[in-house]
């Protein structure tokens, strides 16, 4: 597990920074909720009638004035979008950075199979995503306690599980792409995560665009749907798991055959 440790050491500062920013924004969001709560009750109706805008964010289906409704939209966007960007960056750079930074020649002339390298790098991505989410969950639980809210644990668990699954899928797809490229992955990663996010917004706007939910991992993170149905949409999650598996398989397949540029 030498590479795993090295990857975690190398990524430590970025992990701390992303975690701090996401946790800080979640804290702010939750801590201002009591003050906003009463206003939200009044605004909730207005939000629900803002047509396409509220539909895009799922605000037409939930009560924005209740903690869970507020949390699923506001905090969902922070942890969803922020987490997706972080996961995409981790995934896209995991394998490609060795060639980009000209360290591939050093790493790959040591007695480790490429399969082993992909495995350890993949695990390091997963571990970092888990750390970020664990920090986010802890911060949210702590803040909810501070403001005296007792959110529905079942719904909250489902929401966090959806964000985590989405981040893992995003990272896995980018990880697969990472095996193909040797530089310039940053734009692909961030652009891909943003594309996934907007595909979901579009799919919320029109019934005819619903199929887009199959293409984006944000399809099963829609907080309103989760709160109303009490479960994750199995058909979207299944496709997401398939995308995840395909990304990981592509990374192994390509990296084990690839001519390394130095």
């Amino acid at each position: 597990m030498t590479i795993l440790k090295q990857e975690l050491r190398q990524g430590r500062n970025a992990l701390i920074l992303w975690t701090a920013v996401i946790v800080f924004m979640l804290l702010i969001c939750i801590l201002i909720y009591p003050e906003m709560g009463s206003q939200m009750n009044e605004l909730s109706g207005a939000f629900a009638n803002m047509g396409g805008f509220s539909a895009a964010f799922g605000m037409d289906k939930i009560n924005f004035g209740e903690f869970m409704g507020f949390f699923s939209v506001e905090c969902g966007n922070i942890l969803g979008l922020g987490g997706a960007f972080f996961a995409a960056l981790l995934g896209i750079s995991a394998l490609a950075k060795e060639e980009k930074e000209h360290t591939a020649e050093f790493l790959l002339t040591h007695p480790l199979s490429r399969k082993n390298i992909v495995l350890q790098k993949g695990l390091s991505v997963l571990v970092q995503i888990l750390i970020l989410n664990a920090a986010a969950v802890s911060a949210c639980a702590f803040c909810a306690f501070l403001i005296g809210e007792k959110p529905d644990i079942g719904s909250l668990t489902l929401l966090f599980l959806a964000y985590l699954t989405m981040q893992i899928e995003t990272a896995a797809v980018c990880f697969g792409i990472s095996a193909w490229i040797s530089s310039g992955g940053l734009g692909i990663g961030l652009g891909g995560a943003a594309l996934f996010y907007f595909l979901n917004l579009i799919s919320n706007l029109a019934e005819g665009a619903k199929f887009l939910k199959f293409l984006t991992p944000f399809g099963y993170t829609d907080g309103a749907e989760i709160l109303i149905s009490g479960h994750l949409e199995a058909k979207y999650v299944t496709v997401g798991i398939l995308f995840t598996a395909a990304g990981i398989a592509a990374a192994f397949w390509k990296y084990c055959r690839k001519d390394i540029s130095v």
Partner: peptide
């Protein structure tokens, strides 16, 4: 086998000692 490439590139944030130990640990 020991290999010395024509252009020696390492992880820029690491110290010399850490790179040398990392190389040994990979073996």
């Amino acid at each position: 086998t020991g290999y010395m490439p024509s252009e020696a590139s390492f992880y820029r944030g690491m110290k010399v000692r850490e790179v040398i130990r990392y190389s040994a640990a990979l073996r």
